[in-house]
Nucleic acid binder design. Structure first.
Lengths: 230, 230
DNA sequence: CGTTTCGTTTTTATATGCAAAATTGTTTTA
DNA sequence: TAAAACAATTTTGCATATAAAAACGAAACG
């Protein structure tokens, strides 16, 4: 949904700015708000039916997460993608995810296998049902279940933040990569098996392979959508 | 410096909220603003001679970096330390720093050895001169030089954010750990040597050792300063 | 004495207004 | 025509005012 259409409801259970943050973050990741697009504060305020103050707070937070770029006295824009941005995200994610699965494989926190299997099952279903949004949400879940099993809550926060940028790229190329569902699922299966085995090294290798997949998309997306890249 | 004293100057080259952010972040890391301390917006606004708006923006950013906790309609407080917070920071840092030195050792970006040696030399001097603030700033530098050598700018951002929490702990115990200067320098020396050798594995090992040092402090600080911990 | 109630104070959340910087389009000028 | 100057518009940064929620303290009450 672009800025012109729709009138999202603001509820009263959470702060206005939080809701606006979530809403915009979602639209940016879904590539509904496109890279480079201008999003003026007053337009957003009007769209949500609130003042500019909570909108500003939301935009500031989005900026600190790398989703928008605030150019003082010029405007606020959805950040463009860049090859370096994606490689950066992959580097950070790989470092953390590898450390996570190694840790999990070696410490075997109780119930972790069951949780992974559970998410895996649901994700398989959503793949069969052809529901890409649900699939992606469960993909987030799979990785956050692993990260949270370390007992370090901020780890999954950092991973999610980086994953978001990779997801933007992925959503840009959803059509071309429909067949990737099975591929992703197979890799998750390998990761689970490695954790079961208790071998930190094989868990590490499985995750490294998983992280490298983004390259397939990265090799075609920039020339196919040059406007969305720096 | 606590909230009652001092009148920091606000310049006009950067935005007001950015300057306030930097100022407060520094005071929190230096343990000048103590864990659990309340920092009301209006007091800060008065202290800086500005309105509450930029103060709010700065506090929001500090909150997203984990330095303060905003309890709606209740108040804003400097976050307390916790053993888990520190272990978390160490986990994230270790994962990233290890990936960084491995990458650097294996790719040998031009000039990296020289830059490290340079920082090392300066840091040795500041240790001799007994300047803990400068020592710490150069410690940041050492790690960010390495991280930036990967070409992925956000890596050093994430590392710095986590390092900040470990530094808070370290600054809490500066007196007891005066002798650590030489220890840190020796470890940096080992890391540089490992990078020179081009062996990702030995670089990794050296960095892992370096990261583990926080435990010495962590084993005494919580009981010595129970008020500052959850 | 302990508890509840109620008004006061404190503090954040949001709305609104104004100022300053940058952009844009038009007009003027050589 | 091309360039420069200028005015109008857009847009963010900051200040101020109001609202609402929570905390606090004193008084009333059992």
């Amino acid at each position: 949904m672009s800025l012109e259409s729709g009138n999202p409801q603001i509820s009263y259970t959470r702060s206005t700015s939080e809701q606006i943050f979530d809403y915009l973050r979602d639209e940016i990741i879904r590539m509904d708000l496109l890279p480079g697009e201008k999003i003026p504060e007053n337009l957003l305020a009007e769209k949500f039916g609130v003042s500019r103050t909570p909108v500003r707070a939301a935009l500031a937070e989005l900026s600190s997460n790398g989703f928008v770029e605030i150019r003082p006295q010029r405007g606020t824009f959805v950040t463009k993608l860049s090859i370096n941005l994606i490689l950066e995200a992959r580097f950070i994610r790989e470092a953390l995810e590898v450390a996570v699965v190694s840790h999990v494989a070696e410490n075997q926190p109780p119930g972790i296998i069951e949780k992974c299997e559970q998410v895996f099952a649901e994700q398989s279903e959503s793949a069969k049902a052809g529901d890409p949004l649900k699939f992606q949400r469960l993909d987030d879940k799979f990785h956050s279940v692993l990260a949270d099993a370390t007992g370090f809550g901020r780890v999954s926060k950092v991973i999610e933040a980086e994953k978001a940028h990779m997801d933007r790229l992925r959503n840009l190329s959803l059509q071309e990569f429909e067949g990737q569902y099975d591929h992703v699922l197979e890799q998750h299966r390998v990761i689970i098996t490695a954790i079961k085995s208790g071998s930190g090294t094989s868990a590490k290798n499985a995750m490294e392979t998983h992280m490298r997949d983004v390259f397939a998309i990265l090799s075609v997306a920039p020339e196919k959508h040059p406007d969305y890249f720096y």
